[in-house]
Design a protein around this nucleic acid. Structure first.
Lengths: 158, 158
DNA sequence: CGACAGACTGTGCAACCTGCTCACTTCGGA
DNA sequence: TCCGAAGTGAGCAGGTTGCACAGTCTGTCG
């Protein structure tokens, strides 16, 4: 994770369509170097994919909400998680510390439709309670790029 | 958003490196069609980008936490949001309903390092309280793809 | 019913890029 | 000092892209 890696990631983040050759020209390094760096970044797991990023909003799901679930039995996590995985509207789920046991992000077609999604989520044995928080506006859109630059401060720890 | 669009997205999600030509062969349509569909998906905002997906974990930030902030003044949202945007460890932030006012996802290098990040977050005038929930394990990794298939049920509403 | 716009197809071409290989150089560590 | 890992520059065949064009098909509108 040196400076070249960081610049490379920034470049591809800014202009994903540039090819390896074009990237090598911009950075002033050989084509093989760019290719090798990219391969290594993927191998190291820093870059996890190149797939298209999809907007739930544009897909017709403009409502985002965060659900905190309480599970009846600690051993019930797995069953509930599997249940959540089958619901398309559940975009992600984590086990958490604190009052709740499971946290998940869901989307829905409308405020009214959110009820349907919540019903879906809690419709499995083991969910004792669900508290819902709705996301109103995005203040900071999801991003990781700044972290990349932040790693510049260290002595190549990652 | 018809069946072709959905198949196309699925294909590119599964194998991002396939080119337009290869995609057209797989789907049995003309190359120009694939190109046109792709352009339209981007124009419609369904596909928001093709950039590399980065793993905070691989970058040296294995700890994820969710912070719920209470803001002193409702009008303070903007200032706090701008502050959050300057912190690399803040991956996203939303205004929310309920007890808190602002929700954000942060990462850190370690449990101990999380303290530093939290201090950073609350080090702006306007943040009255912050409650922290740590993410322990990922049960459902972030995904949108299932939503795409879910739109098949409707009469091309999106 | 006929005209029409929008979408899809199949073709062609020049320019470009990719994957791969090879020989040479550079640099830091054992 | 020697070695391995990494970078460089070059070359080549084959595939791909961007672009243009004409023909076809479909649903819509007057």
């Amino acid at each position: 994770m040196d400076d070249l890696d960081r610049t490379l990631i920034s470049l591809f983040a800014a202009e994903p369509r540039v090819g390896v050759l074009e990237a090598s020209r911009r950075l002033g390094v050989a084509r093989g170097t760019v290719q090798a760096r990219l391969d290594r970044l993927v191998a190291r797991g820093v870059v996890t994919g190149w797939g298209p990023e999809l907007s739930p909003e544009a897909l017709g799901y403009p409502v985002t909400a965060f659900l905190t679930l309480e599970i009846r039995q600690l051993s019930g996590h797995l069953a509930v998680a599997e249940h959540l995985a089958t619901i398309p509207e559940v975009l992600e789920a984590h086990t958490i510390t604190g009052a709740g046991d499971l946290w998940c992000r869901v989307v829905s077609r409308s405020n009214a439709d959110l009820q349907r999604v919540i019903d879906l989520v809690v419709s499995v044995d083991g969910v004792q309670r669900a508290s819902t928080v709705m996301a109103l506006a995005v203040q900071v859109p999801y991003r990781v790029l700044p972290l990349v630059d932040a790693t510049a401060d260290e002595r190549d720890g990652a």
